[in-house]
């Protein structure tokens, strides 16, 4: 579903300007194209499902409200990412919430549940490939919290900048590459342990 719409920076700017001018279809395309990015940023903060969903909604409501005020339409993806990050930080600081690392639910979601997307895969792809994706997801969830957060953020589509990664995770831009390599190395080991290579 999400693979159908890819939004590069040029078309983002074009879609954004059309949305400012009142074109509902352009807004819908923006939402479809940039939602995976917002979702990745929210997920990288390790929020509970309910909190993640609230932040996602607030982020899009804010964009709709600020349409006429965004000065750089080509950078609306970056605007969404930093808005989502700021909201995540506030939600984490709200006294009601437990600290994310105390919350066992965080990365349990959908590990064994069958999503509609997966049903499509079931029909279209060989079972070996399916098993491999499941093993990949399970291996990912066995990584330490820091690796999960970094890799989840790097999975954003369209991608977030290293500056945004740095701001989100509090690590230096120069450290992102080496940490990514180390995390992927661990992922590879976990995958091998499951009989995949």
């Amino acid at each position: 579903m999400q693979g159908d719409v890819t939004v590069d920076r040029d078309s983002t700017g074009t879609l954004f300007r059309a949305a400012v001018d009142g074109e509902t279809a352009a807004w819908k395309s923006l939402v479809e194209g940039l939602s995976p990015l917002v979702w990745s940023v929210v997920r990288a903060h390790g929020l509970r499902d309910a909190d993640a969903q609230e932040v996602y909604q607030t982020t899009w409501f804010r964009l709709a409200q600020n349409l006429a005020r965004i000065r750089e339409p080509d950078r609306v993806g970056a605007w969404l990412a930093s808005t989502a990050r700021n909201e995540c930080v506030k939600v984490i600081r709200t006294a009601r919430r437990v600290s994310p690392s105390d919350d066992p639910e965080v990365f349990d979601r959908a590990a064994d549940g069958r999503t509609p997307e997966q049903a499509v895969v079931d029909a279209e792809e060989a079972s070996m490939e399916r098993e491999r994706m499941r093993a990949m997801w399970q291996a990912f969830q066995e990584l330490g919290e820091n690796c999960r957060r970094l890799l989840r953020l790097l999975m954003a589509s369209p991608p977030v900048s290293y500056q945004e990664v740095s701001a989100t995770l509090g690590i230096a831009v120069g450290s992102i590459g080496p940490i990514r390599q180390r995390c992927l190395r661990r992922l590879r080991v976990l995958l091998t342990e499951r009989g995949f290579r």
């Binding site: 979702w39 890799l151 999975m155 992922l187």
Partner: peptide
């Protein structure tokens, strides 16, 4: 590896 992980994420943790 990252490309495969990206596909797994899209399958198992999509935007609701």
């Amino acid at each position: 590896l990252e490309a495969e992980l990206r596909r797994a994420v899209e399958l198992f943790d999509p935007v609701p």
